[in-house]
Amino acid sequence: FHVTIHVGDITFHIHGVSEEEVKKLEELVRRGADWREIKKTIEEIEK
């Protein structure tokens, strides 16, 4: 999957994300995680 996440003024683009990881990111966004937490999760996914 290709994912784009907008957190305030920050936009993250992630490529090659599995469905499971998409759900993890959706959950973070849904519970209102700040951009640092989302960035950390994205960095883990990209490894």
Rank of each mutant, 00 (worst) to 15 (best):
L25I: 11
T41M: 14
E19W: 15
I14G: 01
D34N: 08
E43R: 07
V29A: 09
I10C: 10
H15A: 06
G16Y: 14
E26H: 13
I45Y: 09
K23F: 12
L25K: 00
H15M: 08
H2G: 07
G32Y: 03
H13E: 12
K24Y: 09
K40Q: 11
I45K: 03
K23D: 08
E26F: 10
F12W: 10
H2V: 14
E20M: 13
T4C: 03
G16V: 15
K23G: 10
R36I: 15
E27R: 06
F1G: 12
G8M: 04
W35L: 15
V22F: 13
V17Y: 14
I5H: 00
V7C: 07
F1W: 04
V29R: 04
E27A: 10
L28K: 03
D34V: 00
H15T: 11
V17Q: 04
T11L: 05
K47Y: 08
D9N: 13
L25V: 05
L28Y: 02
I42L: 12
E27K: 08
G16T: 10
E37V: 05
E44H: 12
E37I: 03
E43F: 07
F12N: 00
D9H: 08
E44P: 02
D9L: 08
H6C: 08
R36P: 15
E26Y: 11
E20G: 09
D9F: 09
K39V: 12
E43Q: 12
S18H: 05
K24P: 01
K24D: 05
E20P: 09
T4G: 01
F1A: 09
D9G: 14
I38D: 01
G16M: 14
K40V: 12
L28S: 02
E43M: 09
E43W: 05
I14P: 00
H15S: 07
K39S: 13
S18P: 06
E21Q: 14
V22L: 14
F1L: 15
H2N: 14
I14L: 13
I45R: 05
I5E: 00
I45A: 05
E19H: 13
E21I: 15
K24M: 15
V22S: 05
V29Q: 07
R36K: 13
V22C: 08
V29S: 04
V3S: 03
K47T: 11
R30M: 12
T11E: 07
E37G: 01
R30Q: 13
I10E: 09
I5G: 02
T11Y: 10
E37H: 01
E27G: 09
I42P: 00
E19Y: 15
R30E: 12
V7Q: 04
E37K: 02
H2D: 15
K23E: 09
H15G: 05
I14W: 05
E46L: 15
F1Q: 15
T4D: 09
E26C: 08
K47A: 13
V7Y: 15
E19R: 05
K47S: 14
D34L: 01
I38S: 00
T41V: 14
K40Y: 06
E46S: 12
R36M: 15
I10P: 00
K47M: 13
I38K: 00
E46G: 11
R36F: 14
G32A: 06
K39C: 08
R36W: 14
G16S: 11
R30H: 13
V29P: 00
F12E: 01
H2Y: 11
I45F: 12
K24W: 10
E44D: 13
T11R: 03
F12D: 00
I5R: 00
E46V: 14
E27C: 03
F12Q: 01
G8E: 03
T11F: 10
H15K: 05
H6A: 09
I10G: 04
L28V: 08
A33C: 07
I14N: 00
H15E: 07
E19T: 07
K39N: 08
E44W: 07
K23S: 10
E21N: 14
F1I: 12
K23R: 11
A33P: 05
T4F: 03
E26L: 13
H6S: 12
W35A: 14
V3A: 04
G8I: 02
K39P: 01
G32K: 07
H6Q: 13
E43C: 09
K39M: 15
T41C: 07
H15D: 07
V7A: 06
D34M: 01
T41K: 08
E37F: 01
E46N: 12
K40R: 14
K39L: 15
K23L: 10
K47G: 11
L28D: 02
G8T: 02
T4R: 03
S18A: 07
E21A: 14
W35C: 09
L28R: 02
E20H: 12
T41W: 15
D34R: 04
T4A: 04
V7T: 05
T4Y: 03
V22I: 08
E20N: 10
I38Q: 00
V17K: 03
H15W: 11
L28N: 01
F1S: 11
I14C: 02
R31P: 02
E43P: 01
K24R: 14
H6W: 05
